[in-house]
Design a protein around this nucleic acid. Sequence first.
DNA 1: TCTGGGGTCCTAGGACCC
DNA 2: TCTGGGGTCCTAGGACCC
Length: 436
Amino acid sequence: MTMSEVITGKHEQVWALVDAKSFYCSCEQLFDPTLVNKPLVVLSNNDGCCVALSEQAKALGIQRGAPWFKVERDVRMKGIQVRSSNYNLYADMSRRFIEELSKFSPCVEQYSIDEAFVRLDGFKLEQLQDYGHEIKDTIYKNIGLPVRVGIGATATLAKLGNHAAKVYERKVNGVIQIDSDYKRDWLLARTDIQNIWGIGAKTATKLRTLGIDNALQLSQKSAPEMRRVWNVVLARTIMELQGVACIAPGDIDETRKQILSSRSFGQGITEFEELKSALAFHCQRAGEKLRKQGSQANIVGVFLRTNRYKQLPQRNRSSAVALMCPSQDNYKFIESALLQLKQLYKEGYEYQKVGVILDELTPAENNSFQLDMFDTSAYDEAKRRDLMVITDMMNAKFKNGIKPASVIATSNWHMKQAHRSNRWTTRLDELPIAKC
DNA sequence: TCTGGGGTCCTAGGACCC
DNA sequence: TCTGGGGTCCTAGGACCC
């Protein structure tokens, strides 16, 4: 089948969901052969909790999401390997993964760092199993990532198939296509409602009280009726389970509607100066993302909070302020954010996290906005833009890039990353070394 | 000592208007 | 005791996703 046949094919939709197995673990194992087939845990930012586990680590009873400080002893005793998250490496592998998928369909929608929807409209159902395996084998051969594939008439069914491919991994060799009503109902009957895409813990609990425990029971409900009694989200999920496509991840606008930068501190922070430094850093990061997608922000929001798990006085505050005119300028963001921080801050608390949200984003077409007549720096707008462009370029290139002075002030808030592997694919000085 | 970060969409309810 | 009706817009917060 040619690409044009894919595009102009039958009206019926065919969705595939391809996801990488234990993605972070797989990335680590790719560049460190001593980790292959070994129990391995990858931690979240700040070495906070376990976010990825190799099969062997799962078999040893480690739970995804478990706080690191609670399982560390256990992990060490069992001889399980540990790595901090290495996003430089994962992002680069993710890029290659999508690149490979794009060879199979003109319509690939990345859904998260390790999964993507692939439209296979026009394929005959009986062709799909072979095609699914071809996708899986090619990706493994070309970039070394093991993946699973779920195929169905809707995004939700593809997700469900993908989940089933995990559950019945051995039997189906990582690929499941839902190509008959019989097969669909068989799988739905064996899928717990909480494993349906879009049904979380809260909704699952409520549904169970109505005696709805599996996907088949849910799919037999009337969507309009459930929309009336519940909400439109659930109604859509029901229709999707019935095979009527009404969720289209491909239609989601790529440009973000808000941009957030935030992170827990490596340790509790009480000093205002430290918070200032961290917040300025987040303004810088958020600004970079904003300019990268070619937007400008109208609103700068700030939040500040203490650690809810600690038995200490709690404080949780946020605010948002509209700028005089939309901007891409880090220094405007920092100015506004620090003013807000001053309002939110109160002595006597041990803060755990601060963050900035750039909101009401609009496309940054040159000079399409009103200049701020009360701000003389507006006249230097063009110069400031150049400064931002150059700063972004240099920061993309060099390790210790350019930062606003307010960022460098202090450093107690930096992230914990005790077990990070090398950035094998994105840093020249960290390339793997081949030994003869 | 130590519990991630970054998103989206939807809804309820308040403010405001005629 | 009783206190219009209907509409829009905005915001905070909930739920969910990975």
